[in-house]
């Protein structure tokens, strides 16, 4: 174990931890998106999906605890690396310049910490039902009408706007994170690196765009259907 700890504490060990846990979290985000998209299939489809997840029982808890551990490792490592980066430059430049660092790469800590806040809000909202209690009440007595709960929540402009804003942050975070994954694992090639960067951009766009579509669905499609 001490060998593993020493590796984690090394600069490259830390980077590798960020890359691997980041990729696993990306996998979760993709799975979550596929779940979200069930909303577009209508009330029965989404509720059936939610029931299927709940019926997993203890398996669901294994997944939740695993996910939590990955999340904690990603965040703890990020904080350790950021602190070491801060301390590596005790005096700042009077005049600083940025030549080619992307906006996404420079805002990783900001987007990451904001997303942590969002995840907490999101869990309090839909999973624990502590905030926006009115909409969550639509879940019904049997607790399986996820569809009505989601539609009621996203029909409110401030809630929808907040979710969309965080998806924009997720887009930037994923865009830099996914291309960094390749570089950290040592994949760098004159031909493939530009392709990896384009792919990272595309995947981040698909995930954030897909989620935004779900958020907008109640106000765009359902409202139109009602009218």
């Amino acid at each position: 174990m001490s060998w593993l700890c020493a590796f984690w504490r090394s600069s490259i060990g830390g980077k590798l931890t960020m890359a691997v846990t980041g990729l696993l979290l990306f996998g979760f985000v993709v799975a979550h998106l596929l779940g979200n998209l069930q909303l577009l299939g209508g009330q029965e489809k989404l509720n059936a999906y939610a029931k299927m997840l709940h019926d997993l029982g203890s398996l669901l808890w294994v997944a939740r605890i695993g996910l939590l551990l990955i999340f904690v490792l990603h965040i703890v490592t990020a904080i350790r690396l950021s602190r070491s980066n801060r301390s590596a430059r005790p005096v700042q430049y009077a005049k600083s310049a940025t030549l080619q660092a992307s906006f996404a790469s420079r805002s990783m800590l900001f987007s990451g910490l904001s997303l942590l806040g969002f995840v907490i809000y999101h869990l309090l909202h839909f999973t624990l039902g502590v905030v926006h209690v009115d909409e969550v009440a639509k879940k019904g007595a049997d607790g399986h009408d996820v569809y009505s709960m989601v539609v009621a929540s996203f029909s409110k402009a401030p809630v929808a706007a907040a979710y969309i804003a965080f998806q924009v942050l997720l887009f930037f975070h994923l865009q830099h994170g996914l291309q960094s994954f390749a570089q950290t694992l040592g994949l760098h090639h004159a031909r493939y690196t530009p392709m990896i960067k384009s792919l990272a951009f595309l995947l981040a766009l698909v995930v954030a765009g897909g989620n935004i579509l779900v958020v907008l669905y109640p106000s765009l499609w359902l409202a139109k259907g009602a009218a």
């Binding site: 980077k15 980066n85 660092a101 992307s102 790469s105």
Partner: peptide, 17 residues
């Protein structure tokens, strides 16, 4: 890498500056 870490340099975040 061990020697580099000991000197107190920061860590790469792939910004390519």
């Amino acid at each position: 890498v061990t020697a580099m870490d000991k000197e107190g340099f920061g860590n790469c975040t792939n910004q390519n500056e």
